[in-house]
Amino acid sequence: MERDKNFILGVFDDEDVLLNAVTQVRNSGVKIQEVYSPFPVHGLDEVLGYKRSRLPIAAFLFGMLGTTLALTMQFYMMKFDWPMIIGGKDHAAFPAFIPVTFELTVLLAAFGMVGVFMVSSNLKPWGQVRIFDLRITDDKHVMAIDLATNAGIGEEKLAEVLKLSGATEVNKKSFE
């Protein structure tokens, strides 16, 4: 059987039941493809075993880039390219450069991080998405289990594990 094509879906009504169910299902040796929710469920990424996101690092690096660019730009323009005496101060009036440096740091950190988030989560205008169940943006949590990945366990057994863990419905979904 081909991977990433045929899924068995456990539908959950309650986020606390879902959190327990994820642990239970994973303990019984089943590999969960992904869990889809209408809202962020706290602790879900931990029970699924996801690593902490590295997006803060991206934000920091882009922020540093912003600081560097802003300072380089201002010192180059004000001190070297066209020095002018303004208010009797030094050409390289560092305290006066702080506001623009701060703003550009924030700007690049925010845009850089959001850009990385968009790329890593494949978010783009009219982006195509596989919808397992239309209710996952309404009121249901859906646990998707790839039948091919868990071929050794068998469909009936998977359905049973899902039911036992508290799923209110067990459905099947295939993608072309």
């Binding site: 990424d45 699924l48 997006l55 934000a59 924030v106 989560s121 982006g127 195509q128 998405v129």
Partner: peptide, 24 residues
């Protein structure tokens, strides 16, 4: 934007919101 509601996406989303709040 092709939002899928996956736990992974939500996890990243929460991180982004928190950092953006910290920057804002």
């Amino acid at each position: 934007f092709g939002w899928d509601g996956a736990a992974k996406t939500w996890s990243r989303f929460e991180t982004v919101s928190l950092i953006l709040a910290g920057l804002a």
